[in-house]
Structures are given as C-alpha cells and as structure tokens.
Write a protein that binds this DNA or RNA. Structure first.
Length: 234
RNA sequence: UGCAAGCACGACUCUACC
C-alpha cells in the first residue's frame, strides 16, 4: 500500500489526475492515506466537488482526512462549506484552526479570522506564521509586528511573511529592515524584497536585488520581467 | 526500533470566480 500510495502521490503532485485516479483504482487495499491523497489531488487542482465525492466515499476518516477536506474548501474559497465541515468535525487540531484562520483572512473576514485566533487551543510556528500573513492581508501591520516580536522561534517563512506584511502595506523601509536582519534568505525572500521595490517603482533597487540574488528561479525572472513591464520599460 | 505514502504558513505570472 505504501508504494502504491507513493506512486499515486507522484502523479498527483504533477497534476496528472487521470493517472492518479487510475493508480488509485488499482491499489488493492487502500487505506485512509490513499484516500486522502486522492482527495487532496482533486482539491489542489481546483476540483473541490470531486474531492468531496472522495471524502464521502471514504470508508473511514481520521483527522487528517477531515483537515484535508476543510482545506479543500478553503483553498477554493468555499467559506460556508468549510465552516460547516469545521463545525461537524469530531475533533480539531492546530492544523484545522490554521486552515480556517487563513481562509477567513484571505477573504477579508477580520472577525472570523480573529475569532479563530482567539479560540485556537494551541499554536505552533506555522500557526503564528499564518497569523502574520493574515494581519498583513487585513492591513493590521501593527498586530503583525506584535505577533512577530512575541514569537519565541522564527523561521525563514516568519521573516518573509513579515517582510511581505510591510511591503503590502506600503512600508518598503520596514521591509528592507526585515530583509537585512533575516538570518537566512531563500529565493522567496529575495523575490519578496524585489517585489516590494517594484511596487514602489524603485527600478534601481529592483535591478540591484536581482543581481545580488544567489539563485534565480523562474518566479524571480518573471518578477523582474513584470517589474520592467509595469514601469513601462519594455 | 529504523527507512518509504496523506492535511495547515511566505514570493511572480497565468486561469477561474466576484
């Protein structure tokens, strides 16, 4: 089962849903993990209905399966369905709460988001990071800062999320400060910084940033390209 | 007991929805 499901996962990750389905149907004794993998495959590529169909047909559901289904709705912006499922869950963990928090924040529901935040029974690094992003999205930069400052541990995602929070609220300087203070930067951090400059029209900084990047992936190149395009420099 | 499979967090573009 393990090998079969790994194969299924390989198809799923590459978006080969038909192939994934074929593998799924061939698995002799599917377990809850195989089912969940199939569910997520549909969800990730924009088929929440299909995901739900899988969910309904599952012989057994554990919390990961429930979480995956909540996330399936969340990812596709189905707030009501997600909420319904959330309420119906036999038990929830920090993953569940984080998904809901993110869903509300991404759709501008401040109240819902802060409600999730307050009621969350436990928090971990991912939850904190999601909170920073949520505050950034809702324009509550101060709260994002507070959250960031109070975190006992931070990873590159925390730093980049905070950098982005500054950037999307028009504070390039704050963004730059984060960038300079980060213990480690990956390509995402670099691109985020580059974008921050681009949005302010600081093409010179954009160029410098791009040149200084240790590695450039396609997203970095695209960001540079659109930066030039946006400032009219074809 | 170890190795191998499923869920939540950060960047660009495109597409869909509004």
């Amino acid at each position: 089962v393990v090998s079969w499901t790994a194969l299924l996962q390989a198809y799923a990750q590459n978006g080969h849903l038909e192939g994934a389905k074929r593998v799924f149907d061939m698995i002799p004794d599917r377990n809850v993990i195989s089912w969940t993998t199939m569910l997520v495959a549909y969800a990730q590529f924009g088929h929440p209905e299909q995901a739900k169909a899988v969910f309904d047909r599952m012989p057994t559901r554990d919390m990961v399966a429930w979480n995956a289904m909540v996330q399936a709705y969340a990812r596709n912006g189905h707030i009501e369905e997600a909420k319904k499922l959330f309420d119906a869950m036999p038990e929830r963990n920090v993953v569940t709460w984080t998904s809901m928090l993110q869903l509300y924040a991404a759709n501008g529901h401040h109240e819902g988001a802060s409600c999730m935040y307050r009621l969350m029974p436990e928090r971990n690094l991912v939850a904190w990071n999601a909170l920073i992003t949520a505050y950034g999205e809702t324009g509550e930069l101060e709260r994002a800062k507070l959250t960031f400052d109070r975190m006992r541990e931070r990873n590159t995602i925390s730093w980049t999320a905070m950098l982005q929070a500054y950037a999307e609220n028009g504070e390039v300087d704050g963004a730059k400060t984060m960038f300079d203070r980060m213990p480690e930067r990956d390509t995402v951090s670099w691109v985020t910084m580059l974008r921050a400059y681009a949005q302010e029209g600081h093409m010179k900084h954009v160029q410098e940033t791009f040149r200084a990047m240790p590695e450039r992936n396609m997203i970095a190149w695209t960001a540079l390209l659109t930066a030039y395009a946006d400032c009219g420099n074809l």
